[in-house]
Structure formats: C-alpha cells, structure tokens
Design a binder for these strands. Structure first.
Length: 211
DNA sequence: CGGTCGATAGTCT
DNA sequence: GACTATCGACCGG
C-alpha cells in the first residue's frame, strides 16, 4: 500500500513504527536507489525538547511546520545531511527521522555517492545512520521541502513486523538534561540499524589547551 | 568490544 | 561563542 498525505498527518510516534519495512524509492538521472527502512525516530514539537521544532519555527526548520509527507532535510555537524518525513498537521512541527535502511536496489550508486571512501574495511551497509542514508540518496539542502508522495519518489509500506523501541540517538535537548522519550523504532537483527549513542559530551575539560 | 576524539560549518544564543 | 537529531578512526582492555 502506498500511504497518502492523510496517513502521515498523524502523531509521528504512531506513524514512525509503521514505516519500518517500507520501501522508499528515489529516481534520478544517476539511477534509482530503493531503501527498505529499518530504523526511524519520531520527533514532535513544543512538547519535545529534542526536536528542532521545539522552540518554534525558524528558517531552517520551516519545512517541519508545513504539509505532511514532505521531506525535511537539514545539514548538521558541518558535514552531514539527514532526511525526515514531515508528520502531523500543519503548524505542529512534527516529523520522522529516517536513520537506517537496507539498500535493496542501487547499492553501487549509493556507494559511489559517498564522499568519504573507506580506508579500512569495505562498506557493507551503505545506508546505516542518518548521514549515510541521506548520502545514499544524494540529498542536499536543495531537497528540503520536496514532496515524498510525488515523483521522483515512491513509497510502499511493508507488511507489519515486530519491532523494538528505545531512546533516540544523540538527543539531549536544551539544558542537556538527557533524552526523555523512547521514540526510536527499529527492526531487530538488521545490520543497517545503528548502535545506540548517548548525546555527545557537553563540557570541555577545564584548562584545555587553546592551541 | 567500549570510550574518546577530531572534522567542519550552519544555527541559535 | 557554544552546540549540534553524525561518522569513522583510534586506543585500551
């Protein structure tokens, strides 16, 4: 089944696990890449300190406050893009971060799109982690706002499967008081699911050299 | 394994 | 000026 816009216009905590196993396909002049989603995270708005939309609409997160089913693509850490599907009603700022997927078609293209070529071991999971998933699709900020329910995208839900859930990766929230919600969902036993990491350390050691 | 750290630049205070 | 919805390398056990 191909979900419509109303399907996404719901609470992302409900929608996110339903996306597990879905096939998301992207077609471009370079070729086609199809992903089977294995790991996602739900983000809400004013009640979710871990969400980009927590403090309201800004230029960067504006897409999150728009129509459900569109892509919220952001750039972070000075080098990585990430892909979200906007969920809920307009103005709520809800979304679902796509964190991991099995590349079921177009693996050579997905690997060729990687900027950093492997130094040690060959890449076995081209779309493990949100940065790598976005890179496998060749996404940039120019893709922010694109409609995932229209060409060149297509989406087909999988059959419901058992999933697991736990705290979101790298989320601390303003104030650094840690993750509050178990809104990360994944398919157990999938190699394209990233390993858990808590939010990065926030304080530098006192007397650290300024170099 | 698990912990730690550098890269690198946009965003927000 | 600090932080970041990350990644991969490196190091110690």
């Amino acid at each position: 089944m191909t979900p419509d816009r109303a399907w996404f216009a719901r609470d992302p905590v409900v929608v996110a696990p339903l996306l597990l196993g879905a096939i998301l396909t992207h077609e471009s002049a370079e070729g086609r890449v199809a992903l089977r989603l294995t790991e996602v995270e739900a983000y809400r708005g004013s009640d979710d300190p871990g969400a980009h939309s927590f403090r309201g609409r800004t230029a960067r997160n504006a897409t999150m406050f728009g129509e459900a089913g569109h892509a919220y693509v952001y750039f972070t850490y000075g080098m990585h893009h990430a892909l979200n599907v906007v969920a809920g009603g307009e103005g709520e700022g809800w979304g679902i971060l796509l964190r991991g997927a099995e590349v079921v078609e177009g693996a050579p293209l997905a690997l060729a799109r990687r900027s950093a070529k492997p130094r040690r071991s060959p890449i076995v999971e081209p779309a493990r982690g949100p940065g790598n998933l976005a890179q496998a699709l060749g996404l940039t900020l120019s893709d922010d706002g694109t409609d995932l329910l229209a060409s060149p995208w297509s989406l087909e839900l999988g059959t419901p499967a058992p999933f697991e859930q736990g705290p979101r990766v790298g989320v601390a929230g303003p104030g650094g008081d840690g993750e509050r919600f178990p809104w990360r969902f994944w398919l157990p036993g999938e190699p394209s699911v990233s390993t858990y990491r808590a939010a990065a350390r926030r304080t530098r050691a006192p007397n650290a050299p300024i170099s």
